[in-house]
Design a protein around this nucleic acid. Structure first.
Lengths: 150, 150
DNA sequence: GGTGAAACGTAGGCCGT
DNA sequence: ACGGCCTACGTTTCACC
């Protein structure tokens, strides 16, 4: 674990929004020399504070028009049932996120599919085929007024 | 809207995982010359298929140890109530995502806070203070076995 | 789509504070 | 321990084929 000062936070704020900004431009933004900036960025990467960089793709523009969140409840709460479910989710390309949560369900999924039929195939053929699953509730995303992760 | 061929898809797949890969390395991966690769990337950016680049930060390593998803139901489904709620979400720094969904609730939020007390402040002082809100259910994230957005 | 070259950015050694 | 300067090296980018 490393200590993160105000300059680091400034750097992270910029990088979270503009992941591909050049080190030179970043240095100017945070009012530091390029070398000092680079050293800080490298330290943040090494410490895992920056876990990586991603291009945010627009699902709609790639023919992935269907986005939904699903809450999933399991029949049993054994370790093996969870492991089996998580493995299936890891293997399913439609599943972009799988969160283990507290509450009246065990999992929250984010699923992206080309269209409704494609989503239905996932819902019935993949999720429905898992013996561990007891309840599924689908929340279709109509819009995302805020999405700082993308 | 642009047409996306197989090479484009290859490029997107790499960039989605390694957003800061050099154009040279990317070109090698997709077996194209650097200039052809750059032209494709620039076209994908211009078309909005690539909406931007982000550093993925680890909330736990930044003292943001508390992550939860919240389902929120509104009292009324008028345009003005939705607009007021969305504006409040846009202003709340704890809210990383706000999705408008179908189902028995109107919104799904992703909230990140330093700890439980910080989360409680958000829950009661911000969400609880909004007159439009009728139901709130909190799903605390225990773990994320898959998170391809980060 | 590829080539080449100029412009630009990166990264690490070094020194000062 | 941390910031700034310098510079060799690598990368980006664009006009041209």
């Amino acid at each position: 674990m490393m200590k993160i000062d105000q300059k680091d936070r400034q750097i992270l704020r910029v990088l979270a929004r503009e992941g591909r900004i050049s080190n030179l431009a970043l240095a100017e933004r945070v009012a530091l020399s390029p070398s000092a900036t680079l050293r800080r960025v490298q330290a943040l990467e090494a410490a895992g504070v920056i876990a990586g960089y991603r291009a945010m793709l627009d699902p709609a523009k790639m023919g992935q028009g269907f986005v939904a969140y699903l809450s999933v409840g399991l029949k049993t709460h054994t370790k093996s049932a969870q492991a089996a479910f998580e493995q299936a989710m890891a293997a399913a390309s439609e599943v972009r996120e799988c969160h283990n949560v507290t509450g009246n369900v065990e999992y929250l999924l984010r699923v992206e599919a080309a269209d409704l039929p494609a989503y239905k195939r996932f819902h019935t053929d993949i999720l429905g085929a898992l013996p561990q699953v007891s309840t599924i509730t689908t929340y279709v995303v109509i819009g995302s007024p805020k999405d700082e992760r993308k």
